[in-house]
């Protein structure tokens, strides 16, 4: 049984920028270790390379240098040990909710994917929408289904790329609470990319603040607050101020 430890070893990613005709570094010499069952938020300004960083861990992109190890083994590509939740949900529009959630189970050769998927949907409070299609659901519901889809294959690691950026404020608060409860219950390793300072402080054990392109580690903060956290508490504000200062230093 894998435990979900991630180790990024001197990761770099360079692209060739066609319009500028030169190489462009998105991630540079980034090393980070994430413990099993840890919740790490990756925080940085828009376009700083944090999504590229997550894509490298997911195996969607190959590093130009360095490597990613999961439980001590170098990853060779995407895989069901690392469930990804995308900002735009990435649900299969031609499948109903049940078949979206059963998709990974079928790929894994599960003996009864639909029954199991139904159980997962029940457990995350999504019973009764089995037959609905993604376009019939609100953004918040779609993201819940996307989360259920990865929970169905029970990966030790969840990689989340600004998952709540596209939903309205009220829904976001609900989804954040649900994610927190989920994490406390299942204790998966979570790497959560966001540009929301409050969101990072609210959810994470540790916050990795990145510099702007190329992404390097600027600071790593351990959030030493009891859960559930109260954004109006003075201690919360102190973290907020500290991170804001770090981010400002980097802004042009």
């Amino acid at each position: 049984m894998s435990s979900g430890a991630i180790f990024c070893e001197r990761l770099s990613k360079r692209y060739f920028d066609r319009s500028a005709r030169r190489k462009f570094a998105a991630v540079a010499d980034l090393s980070l270790s994430v413990d099993p069952r840890e919740f790490v938020a990756v925080l940085g300004p828009s376009g700083c390379g944090k999504t590229t960083f997550l894509n490298l861990i997911a195996g969607f992109e190959r590093p130009s240098a360095g490597r990613v190890l999961v439980d001590g083994k170098t990853i060779a590509g995407p895989g069901p040990d690392r469930g990804v939740v995308f900002q735009d949900y990435a649900l299969f529009p031609w499948l109903d909710v049940l078949h979206n959630v059963a998709f990974g189970l079928k790929e894994a050769g599960h003996p009864s994917p639909k029954e199991h998927a139904r159980g997962v949907l029940q457990s995350v409070g999504l019973g009764g929408i089995d037959r609905r299609y993604p376009h019939e659901l609100s953004g918040g519901m779609r993201q819940r289904v996307a989360l259920a889809r990865v929970l169905a294959i029970d990966p030790p690691i969840l990689l989340m790329d600004e998952p709540f950026a596209a939903v309205d404020l009220q829904t976001r608060a609900v989804l954040q609470r649900e994610l927190q409860e989920l994490w406390l219950r299942t204790r998966k390793t979570i790497v959560f990319v966001t540009h929301g300072v409050d969101e990072a402080i609210l959810l994470a054990d540790r916050i990795v603040v990145l510099t702007s392109a190329p992404a390097r580690i600027k600071a790593v903060l351990t959030v030493d607050l009891d859960r559930p956290r109260d954004p109006s508490a003075p201690a919360f504000s102190r973290y907020r101020t500290k991170i804001a200062t770090l981010l400002e230093e980097d802004a042009d």
Partner: peptide, 12 residues
Amino acid sequence: PLTLIRAARMLG
């Protein structure tokens, strides 16, 4: 869409 391809790859 690239994300659908990635989603499928990630799901196995």
